[in-house]
């Protein structure tokens, strides 16, 4: 009994860590621009697919990873420069359409460049399951969790201790005031997208050995990542990670104890309940409306 509960939790943490990584990407861009980037899932796909293609072309894995990350970051910055920046004054709904349009566009490109096959990458440290009090976990899941944890620490440091990070937060809070204080807001937007794309690419590379990657993987991952970020409270890195892990564990527990057919529905019911009780998510700050 205890063993299976533990197994459910580990299963949930494996999926949850993946959702959390995607959720973090949403958070960075939201923090810098109040834009929800629905193309975040595509960053993961581009990172994963490029790595697969580059290794297949004969490059050693580490070099492939670096190149794939660079490619994804370039795509991210291009998106910021050519799609988000020119539309900076558009309202929320228009920006949502732009990022959804971007995700469809990028999916089309990925499909054309890399094809429609499903791919995998070899796990970083073998496929021998780790045994934990009778329950098992793949080493790759530890990689995902470890990298998520590391990225949160780096982000916390970046936003709280570096000038660049503070400039980003200031821009999100009040773009005009930040500009008057000498912050180059265009640069902030570009670097936020670059950072978020970096996160997506890294996520795609560590996650691919578990979930595989295809040109379509981004839809589901984007949806779950968005859910994680909203559940935790938009703009809060810790919140996004907590949201992702909660989402994963709720799904696994529901599949284990209630019904595998309804596990996704149960997760969404919980999100709804949380939002009704706390309209700004678990860790979100209460917003103030200005007249």
């Amino acid at each position: 009994m205890f063993e299976s509960t533990l197994q459910f939790i580990l299963a949930g943490l494996t999926s949850g860590a993946i959702y959390a990584l995607v959720g973090l990407g949403f958070t960075i861009i939201y923090n810098a621009s109040h834009v929800i980037n629905f193309a975040q899932g595509e960053f993961i796909v581009i990172g994963g697919m490029s790595t697969v293609a580059l290794t297949a072309a004969g490059l050693p894995l580490p070099l492939a990873i670096v190149l794939a990350t660079v490619v994804t970051m370039v795509v991210g910055m291009a998106l910021a420069r050519f799609a988000i920046q020119p539309a900076k004054d558009a309202d929320v709904v228009a920006l949502i359409i732009i990022t959804i349009g971007a995700s469809i566009f990028l999916r089309g490109i990925v499909q054309l460049v890399f094809g429609k096959d499903i791919h995998s990458l070899p796990p970083f440290s073998g496929e021998t399951p780790l045994n934990l009090m009778g329950a098992t976990l793949m080493p790759q899941s530890l990689w995902v969790m470890g990298i998520s944890a590391g990225l949160i620490l780096v982000m916390a440091w970046f936003f709280n201790a570096t000038l660049a990070g503070k400039a980003m937060l200031a821009t999100a809070y009040n773009s005009l005031a930040a500009r008057l204080m000498g912050v180059d807001t265009k640069w902030v937007l570009l670097s936020a997208f670059a950072l978020s794309a970096f996160l997506g690419a890294v996520g795609g590379i560590v996650v691919t050995p578990i979930t595989f990657v295809s040109y379509e993987s981004g839809i589901m991952l984007g949806l779950k990542g968005f859910s994680a970020a909203v559940l935790g409270g938009l703009g809060n890195g810790i919140g996004a990670v907590a949201g992702g892990l909660i989402l994963g564990v709720v799904e696994a527990m529901s599949a284990g104890y209630i019904s595998s057919a309804y596990k996704d529905a149960i997760a969404f019911v919980i999100i709804l309940v949380v939002l009704v009780a706390r309209p700004n998510g678990l860790f979100g700050k209460k917003g103030i409306d200005r007249v």
Binding site: A87, D89, D91, G101, F105, L106, G108, Q111, L112
Partner: peptide, 20 residues
């Protein structure tokens, strides 16, 4: 059909950027 998503995505982005 191979180019359908690319064109569709570009039209969505373009319209919202130039005609918000």
């Amino acid at each position: 059909e191979d180019f359908e998503p690319i064109i569709l995505g570009a039209i969505m982005m373009g319209t919202m950027i130039f005609m918000p």
